[in-house]
C-alpha cells in the first residue's frame, strides 16, 4: 500500500533472544501513532530494526515504506528513502558542526551533478532553528557534543525538520527532558505534523502524549501490540499501570 509505513509479522532477534514477535503495525501518512509499553518490551528494538541497525536480526516479516520493502536496504538508503529515526541517545560527534552534519545529510540526497545551494541551505536552517527556538549560534557547535538532554532532543527534531522524512520514528524522545524542554520539543514535532508525514512516537510515559496528541495509541508488551485505541487509551494505561497490560497479553506469551 502506498502512503503508509506498513510493518507485517516482523520477527526480530538480538543474538539468540527473540524480541519482536510477529509484530504488525500500519502508520498512514498524516497520522501520529504512539506506542507505549513497559521497559524491555521491544519498543526500542522496533525503532532500531526499522532503521536497519546491524545488531538486530530480522528473521522474518516485512517493512514496506510506501509499498516498497526497505529490509534489503542499508540504513543510509532507508533514510534517503524517507525514514527518520530520532534517537533515544543521540551520538556525540566531536568536531563536526551541526551545520556541516546536516549539510552532509542533505548532500547525500542530491544526485552526483547537483550541488547544495549554500545560501538557500542556511536560510532554511535558520528558519527551522527559529521555529524550534534553537539559538543560531548552535550551528557552529559540534553535534551533540556536551549538549544537555534537551539540546540533544531539539537537535534531533531540527534534523528531522531539515530532512523532511515521510515517516519519523521518535524513540523515547521525552527521556532526559524536563517539562520545559519537553514542551519545546513537542511543539517542534507538532509543527512538523501534516499530511505528508507519518509519525510513530515511542514512549514509556503518558506525559509526552499530553503535548504530542496521537491519533492512535498502541500498547506493546512482550514483542507485540496487545491493544490499540484512541488517545484515551494512554490515560487509561496511566491510571491502571502496566500490570494491566500483562493481563491483555495472549496466553502463553
Amino acid at each position: 500500500m502506498s502512503n503508509t509505513l506498513e510493518i507485517t509479522n516482523l520477527n526480530v532477534s538480538i543474538g539468540d533472544k527473540q524480541i519482536l514477535k510477529d509484530f504488525s503495525l500500519t502508520i498512514p501518512k498524516g497520522e501520529v501513532h504512539a506506542i507505549m509499553g513497559p521497559n524491555g518490551t521491544g519498543k526500542s528494538t522496533l525503532a532500531k530494526a526499522i532503521a536497519g541497525h546491524p545488531d538486530y536480526e530480522i528473521t522474518s516479516g516485512e517493512v514496506l515504506l510506501d509499498g516498497e520493502s526497505i529490509l534489503d536496504m542499508e540504513p543510509d538508503e532507508r533514510s534517503r528513502a524517507g525514514l527518520f529515526l530520532a534517537f533515544q541517545y543521540p551520538m556525540e560527534i566531536p568536531g563536526v558542526s551541526i551545520a556541516n552534519f546536516i549539510r552532509a545529510a542533505k548532500n547525500a540526497r542530491l544526485s552526483e551533478d547537483e550541488e547544495l545551494n549554500a545560501p538557500a541551505y542556511y536560510k532554511e536552517l535558520y528558519e527551522k532553528m527559529d521555529m524550534l527556538q534553537i539559538d543560531r549560534k548552535f550551528t557552529a557547535r559540534s553535534v551533540n557534543d556536551g549538549f544537555s538532554g534537551g539540546e540533544k532532543k531539539r537537535c534531533e527534531i531540527l534534523q528531522m525538520a531539515m530532512l523532511q522524512p515521510s515517516y519519523a520514528v521518535l524513540d523515547e524522545t521525552d527521556s532526559g527532558l524536563d517539562i520545559d524542554a519537553l514542551k519545546v520539543v513537542s511543539e517542534g514535532v507538532n509543527t512538523l505534523r501534516g499530511d505528508n508525514l507519518g509519525v510513530l512516537v515511542i514512549t514509556h510515559y503518558q506525559r509526552l502524549l499530553d503535548y504530542i496528541v496521537p491519533d492512535v495509541v498502541h500498547v506493546m508488551y512482550d514483542g507485540r501490540i496487545v491493544k490499540s485505541g484512541d488517545k484515551n487509551l494512554a490515560l487509561e494505561l496511566e491510571s491502571k499501570g502496566y500490570d494491566w497490560v500483562k493481563e491483555l497479553a495472549p496466553a502463553g506469551a
Binding site: A51, G52, H53, P54, E74, P75, D76, R78, S79, R80, F84, L85, F87, P90, M91, I93, P94, G95, V96, N100, F101, I102, A104, A105, N107, A108, R109, S142, Q159, L163
Partner: peptide, 27 residues
C-alpha cells in the same frame, strides 16, 4: 554506533568516516 547514527541520517559509510576524521582534526 557513531557510524550508525550518521547512516540513519542518510550519510553513506565513506562520507561518515570522512566526517568523523575531519571532526577529529577540527580541534
Amino acid at each position: 554506533e557513531e557510524i550508525f547514527y550518521m547512516l540513519a541520517r542518510g550519510i553513506d559509510r565513506d562520507a561518515a568516516n570522512e566526517l568523523i576524521v575531519n571532526g577529529f582534526f577540527e580541534e
